[in-house]
Simulated assay, not measured.
Amino acid sequence: MDGSPMKSRLTFINNTNSLSLLLLCLLTLIVSGCEDRRMNNMAEDKVSLSDFGENVQNVFKWENPTYQLQVIKSGAGQTGGEVTLHVDESVLAQYGDTYTLLPDRLYKVKAPLISLAKSDYSVPFEIEFDAAGIEALQAETKLLYAVPFKISSNTIKPAAENQLYSLVVPKILSPYIHFKTAGLAPDASAVSTANSPAESRFYAFLQTNYHNKTDLQYKVEVSGAALAAYNLANGTTHKLLPADAYKLDEGSFVVANLNDEQALSYYLLKGKVANGEYMLPLEITSVSKYGIDPARSTMLIPVKIQD
């Protein structure tokens, strides 16, 4: 026998082994090519403050005014841990003599240590201020006060240094309602005796200087005294629109819950007065909660009655 069948069998086995090796190599390449590399270009988690740097915050004179200083965790969302808030007086030096350290009796951090889960993006530190106490101290000393807060963490990498501190400057305010465009309105409300309907509807907008969380009822009246005071102060002779020529919609005297701005409606009535220029002076006279801004409580609306 010349061994040809044996050689053929060996050749077949060698070819089979080579093919298997080739398939194994291809499979290895495919697996390595499918490796999950989604995290390769993702930034690592870092913590910072949302309101970093000089941070003036409105603090209203109501019960337990609280400010939420937000901690932000940016990145791939692969790290959780704890963040601590503390006062770093060295931050004040960056602002020269502009601010004085607020005494710690006039504010309270409810929890100076917070935890962030891997999935958390933002968690707040809650800071409660004594608004009346701060206002009294400022009136006595004539100084501006601030609290230089800074965050640190042993488990989550910090962001840039300037994003780790917040110089919180409490600005004490009374919660008020006011006209959006107080004083003399820039545009006149006009009625055409030829083309206008019997009643023409117009709007005047009111606002709160805080985030309103109730149905805020108020009252607006036409004030001849406000018009007289304006004429005296400005040397003008605006005429009061007669009562027969307008109607206030008292049903619109409300700023709805979760709204900080809303319009009242008033109507001008055609054919009630002679053509000419008049003034409709509106004044906020009462509100169901908090107060009225004395500097923005009136709105004088020019009225034109024309052909």
Rank of each mutant, 00 (worst) to 15 (best):
S4G: 14
S4Q: 14
S4W: 12
M6Q: 14
R9F: 12
L10Q: 11
I13G: 08
N15M: 15
N17K: 15
N17V: 15
S18T: 15
L19H: 09
S20W: 10
L23P: 04
C25D: 13
L26H: 09
L27G: 13
L29M: 11
I30M: 13
V31R: 11
V31A: 15
C34L: 12
D36W: 03
R38E: 15
R38Y: 14
N40A: 14
M42A: 14
K46Y: 09
L49R: 01
S50D: 11
D51L: 00
F52L: 00
G53K: 05
N55L: 01
N55T: 02
V56K: 10
Q57D: 05
F60A: 01
E63R: 11
T66Q: 09
T66I: 08
T66G: 03
Y67C: 00
Q68H: 10
L69W: 02
V71C: 04
T79I: 10
G80T: 05
V83T: 08
V83L: 09
S90P: 02
L92P: 02
Y99H: 05
T100P: 05
T100K: 14
L102D: 02
P103R: 12
D104G: 03
R105Q: 12
R105V: 11
V109W: 01
V109K: 03
K110H: 13
P112A: 12
I114W: 12
A117N: 15
S119M: 13
S122T: 14
V123Y: 08
V123E: 10
V123F: 09
P124R: 03
E126L: 14
D130S: 05
D130C: 01
A132W: 04
I134R: 02
Q138T: 13
A139S: 10
L143G: 04
Y145S: 01
K150L: 02
I151W: 00
K157D: 12
A159T: 05
E161R: 04
L164Y: 00
L164C: 04
Y165P: 00
Y165K: 00
V168P: 00
V168C: 00
V169P: 00
P170Q: 02
K171N: 12
I172C: 00
L173K: 12
H178R: 14
A182D: 07
A185K: 09
A188N: 06
S189D: 11
V191F: 04
V191K: 03
N195Q: 15
F202N: 11
Y203M: 10
K213T: 14
L216Q: 02
Q217V: 11
Q217A: 14
Y218W: 04
K219M: 11
K219T: 15
E221S: 10
A229F: 14
A229T: 09
N231V: 10
L232V: 06
K239S: 07
K239W: 02
K239L: 09
L241I: 07
P242H: 06
A245H: 01
D249S: 04
F253T: 03
V254N: 12
V255S: 06
N259M: 13
K270V: 06
A274V: 11
N275A: 15
I284Y: 04
S286P: 04
Y290D: 10
Y290F: 15
G291A: 10
P294D: 08
P294Q: 09
L300A: 03
V303Q: 01
K304H: 07
